[in-house]
Design a protein around this nucleic acid. Structure first.
Length: 496
RNA sequence: GGUACCAUGGCCGAGCGGUUAGGCACCGGUCUGCAAAACCGUUUACAGCAGUUCGAAUCUGCUUGGUACCUCCA
């Protein structure tokens, strides 16, 4: 079996994964800012890193997965005013800041459950770690890489860049940044335009505020991830993930802060997922093309032709590689919906196939099938190539269906190979990709009714009363239940 | 303006020098009372122009088009 290679954004190369502590992995992923509803774009990193988390566990690692909740201090500097997004939105919605944060945190968790993502091991909040953040800022000041002005604290990027490779992660040259950074007013406090805030003084009307050695204020955005990741994963940990748009300035700043505070670079492997686009444009508040997850699930949005099941979105994301942009389209999601249904039905058929103790009568097919299964691990080890794994499962689907349908003899592949196929589907579809059937039809009462209806239709057909049998089929179809006539007179059904 | 990245068949999407990726759609066929499903088969590709190579979607250069980051952003 091959070994896991991960594309490291920091070195821009695929590197063999070697954890700091054998058998253990520390994984940190930048979580949402809960000042508003999550949108389609958020689905990508959390699904992507859910699969990373699941795969690492599958490989036998004990994973500590930390994903933060940004619930404070996330300010932007548009024009002169530094504003706190949470505070701003709280005023807008006439809610207490914590009330607002709680609302959107709950909504985020609900969406994550619908996507069938595993819960992180720890989900720390920024407001719960003000003390840690202040402590870290003090250390950075003490080491001479931050300075206080009027109750705010800034990181001295120029001084840092003189000794460390600032900009390496995001491929940036400090001089270029200095020249091209947009001209903003009110930045007089900073010694340099490239400096970023570690702590910001709170204006009197600012509701999110904490006492600090520099007066009343609130923390900068970047410092929370550094403080919380080091607290729970150590000063140096294995994998840090997030969206590509966070590379600069967020992750670049994290590296700088942590390097000074702890004397070492914080992360061994940086992973960045690419963006989801809509009509070729990145989805984002700035573009006014945001589709919220609630809208996606309900279909209630002008761009949407229908509602999309969370599993369809999850599947769609897994059909592309996480480092490619993924363009959203109704056609794409509808194709994914059909594909997922077909694959899952093949999986259900597969589970019904009896495993015998036979040798393969078709050695060539047997070898092919075996190879499709075994390749899956290689594909995952090659920087989590979920798309290729799915392609292989789709290669196996006709084999499975043909064994059931009789186009391929039951003993064409060996019992051992059939068992391998079963294990492969279970492992990848359910355990690693975290997929689920679109509809659970294990309702006993519906099952009993359907058994009755099917019996009646079988009887009608046996006496060639096609009028009745077609009526049953049509009416069920209208209700969203589809009857399939199997070979040999058996019937099965699916529910939309 | 600076810095990256990307251009694959009707649509989506793998692909990292030589082998049919795959999905969806379309078309033909098998099966079926009919239909659906399933199965089999077929058809459309690598933005353009040069170059390297025995061989290029895959490497190099140029051209064109697009996107992202440089400001909050998944």
């Amino acid at each position: 079996m091959s070994e896991l290679y991960i594309y490291n954004s920091y070195t821009r190369e695929k590197e063999k994964f070697e954890p700091i502590t054998p058998g253990h992995v520390g994984l940190y992923v930048c979580g949402p800012t809960v000042s508003g509803e999550s949108h389609l774009g958020h689905a990508r990193p959390y699904v992507t890193f859910d699969v990373v988390n699941r795969y690492l566990r599958h490989l036998g690692y004990k994973v500590r997965y930390v994903r933060n909740i940004t619930d404070a201090g996330h300010f932007e500097e548009e024009g002169r005013e530094a504003t706190d997004k949470v505070a701003e939105k709280a005023i807008l919605e006439k809610l207490e800041p914590m009330e607002l944060v709680h609302k959107y945190t709950s909504l985020f968790h609900w969406a994550m459950r619908r996507f069938n993502t595993l819960e992180p091991s720890i989900e720390p909040t920024a407001t719960g770690h003000i003390i840690e953040q202040i402590g870290m800022i003090e250390t950075i000041i003490a080491k001479g890489f931050a300075y206080e002005v009027n109750g705010s604290v800034y990181f001295d990027v120029k001084k840092y860049a003189a000794e460390y490779p600032y900009g390496k992660l995001s491929g940036r040259v400090l001089d270029d940044l200095l020249e091209t950074t947009r001209q903003l007013d009110g930045q007089d406090e900073k010694r340099d335009k490239a400096d970023f805030a570690l702590w910001k003084k709170a204006a009197p009307e600012h509701i999110m505020r904490w006492q600090s050695p520099w007066g009343v204020g609130y923390p900068g955005w970047h410092i929370e991830c550094s403080a919380m990741s080091s607290k729970y994963l150590g000063e140096r940990f294995d994998i840090h993930g997030g969206g590509m748009d966070l590379q600069f300035p967020h992750h670049e700043s994290e590296i700088a802060q942590s390097t000074i505070a702890h004397g070492c670079a914080p992360v061994n492997y940086w992973m960045h997922n690419n963006m989801i686009t809509i009509n070729g444009k990145k989805m984002g508040k700035s573009y006014n093309n945001v589709i919220k997850l609630t809208e996606l699930f309900s279909g209630d949005h002008p761009i949407l032709e229908q509602a999309y099941h969370p599993m369809v979105i999850r599947f769609n994301i897994l059909q592309s590689h996480y480092r490619s942009t993924l363009d959203f389209s109704n056609e794409g999601l509808q194709a994914s919906e059909k594909a997922l249904k077909r694959l899952w039905e093949a999986y259900e058929v597969l589970q019904q196939l009896p495993v015998a103790n036979n040798d393969a009568s078709d050695a060539e097919l047997d070898a092919k099938a075996r190879n499709w299964c075994l390749e899956a691990a290689d594909f995952m080890n090659d920087d989590f190539n979920t798309a290729k794994v799915l392609a292989n499962l789709f290669e196996l689907a006709p084999v499975i269906n043909s064994i059931k349908g009789g186009q391929i003899k039951a003993d064409a592949i060996s019992g051992a190979t059939l068992q391998l196929i079963k294990d492969t589907f279970k492992t990848y579809l359910e355990d690693i990709f975290g997929l689920q059937p679109l509809k659970l039809v294990n309702d006993d009462k519906i099952g009993a009714v359907m058994q009755l209806v099917i019996d009646m239709r079988k009887q009608a057909r046996s006496r060639k009363d096609f009028e009745t049998s077609d009526k049953i089929r049509d009416m069920l179809a209208t209700a969203g239940i589809h009857i399939k006539d199997e070979k040999g007179g058996e019937m099965s059904y699916t529910i939309d």
